[in-house]
Amino acid sequence: MTLTNSQSIQQKKAALRQRLLKARQAIPPQLWRQKSDRICAHLKALPLFTQARTILAYCSFRQEPDLSPLLQIQRSWGLPRCVEKSIIWHRWYPNGSLPLQTGAYGIWEPHPHSPLVEPETVDLILVPAVACDIKGYRLGYGGGYYDRLLSQPAWIGKPTIGIIFEYARLPKIPKAPWDRRLDGICTESGLYFMAD
C-alpha cells in the first residue's frame, strides 16, 4: 500500500510533533519560566501589541510558553474555548471576568457564558504552536483548529504571531495545502517577521 502525499505529510508531522513535545516537556521548570518571561518581554515591547484593542491569546498547556504575565495587563483579551471542531473566542479581563475552567482537553478556558469576542475588534492573534519554520508555517497539535479559524473570512488578514521556544524554530516544517502561514514568530531569542 502506498501513502498519498497528504498521508505522508501527516506522518512526518506526527513524528516531528512527538519529538518536539518530548523536548519541550524536558525543559526544567525554572528555565521554562525564564524563557516564557523573555517571550512576554519581547511582546510587550512590540508596538503591534501595545496598540492592539483586543488580543487573542491562550492559556499555557503541556509546557507551552506561558503568557499569563501578559494577561494581567489591563486590556481586552480573547481566550479560546474548543467546541467540537471550532474555536470560540471569549472576552477576558484580568479583573471582572468569570473564572476560567478546565475544558475538554484539560486546557484552562473561559466560562461558556463569558461574552464573545467580535472579530472586527481583534488587532493581534498570539498563536500557540509545537514549532514554526522560518517561513512562518506552524506545526500544531494536529486538530486543525487554528488553520480552520485563520481560513475564515472574519479572521483573514489579522496579524498572527506564533509563540514557541527557540529550539522549535526550524528551517522547514512539512506543509499541507490547508496550512495557514503566520505573520511572525516570537521566541525567547526575539521576534521574527516573515517577508512576503
Rank of each mutant, 00 (worst) to 15 (best):
Pro177Arg: 12
Ile55Ala: 03
Ile73Tyr: 04
Thr54Phe: 02
Pro128Met: 08
Ile87Trp: 02
Trp178Tyr: 13
Gln10Arg: 15
Ala23Ser: 11
Lys158Arg: 15
Leu67Asn: 08
Leu170Arg: 13
Arg169Ala: 13
Leu79Pro: 02
Ala131Gln: 09
Lys175Val: 15
Arg33Tyr: 03
Phe61Lys: 04
Leu56Asn: 04
Glu120Gly: 05
Ile185Phe: 02
Lys22Pro: 00
Gln63Leu: 00
Asp133Tyr: 04
Gln18Lys: 15
Ile185Tyr: 01
Phe165Asp: 02
Gln74Arg: 10
Ser68Lys: 09
Leu31Phe: 01
Arg148Trp: 10
Lys12Asn: 08
Ala131Trp: 08
Arg75Pro: 03
Ile9Arg: 13
Leu100Trp: 11
Ala131Ile: 09
Ala41Trp: 01
Asp179Cys: 06
Met194Pro: 00
Pro28Leu: 11
Thr2Met: 11
Leu70Arg: 10
Ala154Val: 01
Leu43Gln: 05
Leu21Cys: 06
Lys44Ile: 03
Ile73Gln: 14
Leu70Gln: 06
Lys22Val: 05
Thr54Glu: 02
Glu64Asp: 07
Pro28Cys: 11
Gly144Met: 10
Cys132Val: 12
Tyr58Thr: 09
Tyr167Met: 13
Pro153Gly: 05
Tyr192Ile: 12
Leu100Ser: 08
Val130Cys: 07
Tyr145Gly: 03
Arg38Thr: 10
Glu120Val: 14
Ala176His: 07
Leu56Asp: 01
Tyr192Cys: 10
Ile88Trp: 04
Ser76Ala: 13
